[in-house]
Structures are given as structure tokens and as C-alpha cells.
């Protein structure tokens, strides 16, 4: 959807092979594949693999018309793709972020593994169709891999539009999003009753409400799960400022706190992709490091959780 359909990319090859291999597993647990050192997860209802660490664009890519700031973000995005990034998630709510991403994409060569994801957001009554078309034009793509309904705003109206677009082949997957732990009950109802492919919500080492119902329910319904606010909007880092990683973090190949927080999330079996946002190349390198190496097991996850709560 995002690129020329005749172009053979790593994603397409893996998608074909993995889909065949995982057919018996679809609907159970998303597979974690180690593709040349890169952690990928299979989208449950199709088996298509995507890198487990994506990129969010809330605040970080909303830089307006400043060419200097856009060029800085270009380097962040270049690093993202160089280190195996796939999903980029944006929204019309994020100011100029969609525009800036499109500007950057036009200037990058190695973006064939892009998994394009954005949202429709219409609190002022705008048209979902026009938002989708505008976003696709900004990113210079024929259509999005994933289109989501942002914060469940007017979801009943937009779901029909998105289903129509999916049927026409203009988008490949449909999703709904919330954040900050809000509207989980409504999201549960949507997960149970509606024909969606992805859900996106907040989950991190301190905000774990989703463990009780949303994560198991999404897994049961074979939905892709995208995690936003993996660092609590940056709020996790002050907790560990000036503190060294515990020695046992090396057991799961963790080199910094960003990886500690991300690997906690990625080690949950229901999670497909986490989308940390950053405006810095160095932080992008740290984040992408979480898509390599081992993940903590259940016991270690509990230990990680306790360690942070005790700080």
C-alpha cells in the first residue's frame, strides 16, 4: 500500500514467508521473529511482520515551517530507517507533524520498510475522507497501511468510512486509539463488537491498567496492539535520573533506561509495536536498541516493575 506493489522489499518477503509459517498460529500469540537481529512481531490477523519498535510523532515532529528544525528531524527519521524502523504513527491533531514527516520522507531513500499509520480526528466536524486524502498527499503515498480513529472521536461515523476505504483497497488495516488510560471500557466494547484490526492505547512500566483487560482481550480477538506513551510522555526518565541500570538488566541485553522501559512493554505477548517519540538522533538510537537482543521473561518483568516502583 505504501510503496510500489512490484517492489520486492524485506517486509514483503518476510510477510509471505511468515504468513505461511504462522497460519496455524494466527489468533493465538503474535510471533516474535528475530530477523537478522531485528525484533519483529506478526500482525495477528494476517501474519504480516512489522518491526516491534516504531515511532510516534506527537510533539516531536510538530516543528512548523522551520527548515532547520525539519532537517534535524530528517536525521532522526533517517536513523529510524537505518536501524530497522517500520511503523510511523501520526495524526492531524499533531499540528504540522504529518506535513513534516511527508517532507522528510521525500528526502529519504531507504524508506521501503515504512509502515504508514495515521488517524482521522474530527472534533470540528471535518471530513474523514478529506483528512485521509490530505495525509496521503503529504506523505506522497497511494494510501496508508493503517488508518485509526483518534481517541474514539465520532468513531461510529468514521468506522463506516474506514471500512469502505479498506474495501476499496485505499487502506489495509483499521484501528482505534485512546491514550492516558481513558475510555478503556468503550474501547473494550469496540474490540468485542467491531471489525477492526488494531488498537492503540497507553501502557508502560508504571501505567499498567491495560494488563487487566485490554491486552488480554486484544490478544483474544487477534488484534494488533500499538502502545503509545511508552515513557509516560518522558515522565519515566526523571525517576531514574543519575541512576545506573541494575546489573541484571544485562540478562536481557539492555544498555540504557529507554531500552529497559521499552523491553518491559515488548515482552508482553499481546504487544505488536511500541511507538516512542523522540526529536533526537541519540535517543532514536537508544530506542531502536530495544528491538535487538533478548526480552525479559515473566519473572524478570515483575522484578523490573518492582524496581521502578521502589525508586
Amino acid at each position: 500500500m505504501t510503496e510500489n506493489p512490484m517492489l520486492v522489499t524485506r517486509r514483503r518477503l518476510l510477510s509471505s514467508a511468515t504468513a505461511i509459517a504462522l497460519t496455524p498460529c494466527i489468533g493465538t500469540a503474535p510471533a516474535s521473529a528475530d530477523q537478522g537481529g531485528l525484533l519483529t512481531r506478526a500482525i495477528p490477523n494476517t501474519g504480516e511482520p512489522i518491526p516491534a519498535v516504531g515511532m510516534g510523532t506527537w510533539i516531536t515532529f510538530n516543528v512548523g515551517a522551520s527548515e532547520a528544525l525539519r532537517r534535524q528531524r530528517l536525521e532522526v527519521l533517517r536513523t529510524f530507517f537505518e536501524l530497522g524502523g517500520g511503523m510511523i504513527d501520526s495524526s492531524p491533531m499533531y499540528g504540522s507533524s504529518q506535513d513534516v514527516i511527508g517532507w522528510c520522507l521525500k528526502r529519504l531513500q531507504n524508506k521501503q520498510d515504512l509502515f504508514s499509520a495515521t488517524k482521522v480526528w474530527t472534533p470540528y466536524g471535518a471530513s474523514a475522507e478529506s483528512q485521509m486524502m490530505e495525509a496521503a498527499a503529504l506523505w506522497a503515498i497511494d494510501g496508508f497501511d493503517l488508518m485509526q480513529i483518534h481517541n474514539l472521536v465520532d468513531w461510529e461515523t468514521h468506522l463506516d468510512v474506514l471500512l469502505g476505504a479498506k474495501k476499496d483497497g485505499r487502506i489495509r488495516y483499521i484501528g482505534v486509539t485512546t491514550s492516558h488510560g481513558s475510555r478503556h471500557r468503550e474501547m473494550e466494547r469496540i474490540i468485542r463488537d467491531q471489525p477492526i484490526d488494531f488498537v492503540q492505547f497507553t501502557y508502560n512500566i508504571l501505567d499498567r491498567e491495560a494488563e487487566a483487560r485490554l491486552l488480554p482481550l486484544a490478544r483474544e480477538r487477534a488484534l494488533g496492539v500499538i502502545i503509545n506513551r511508552p515513557f509516560r510522555g518522558g515522565g519515566l526518565f526523571p525517576i531514574v535520573r543519575d541512576k545506573a541500570l541494575p546489573d541484571w538488566a544485562a540478562e536481557f541485553d539492555c544498555r540504557n533506561w529507554a531500552q529497559f522501559f521499552l523491553k518491559f512493554i515488548l515482552s508482553h505477548p499481546a504487544v505488536t509495536c511500541a511507538i516512542p517519540a523522540t526529536s533526537k538522533v541519540a535517543h532514536m538510537r537508544e530506542n531502536m536498541g530495544a528491538s535487538r537482543g533478548r526480552l525479559p521473561g515473566p519473572q524478570t518483568r515483575r522484578r523490573m516493575q518492582q524496581y521502578i516502583e521502589d525508586q
Binding site: 510533539i59 510538530n62 499540528g95 510522555g233
Partner: peptide, 8 residues
Amino acid sequence: QLPYSLDV
């Protein structure tokens, strides 16, 4: 949070 930073 606001959708933009102070430096932006």
C-alpha cells in the same frame, strides 16, 4: 501537554 515544544 501542548502539541508543540517551547523551542518550536
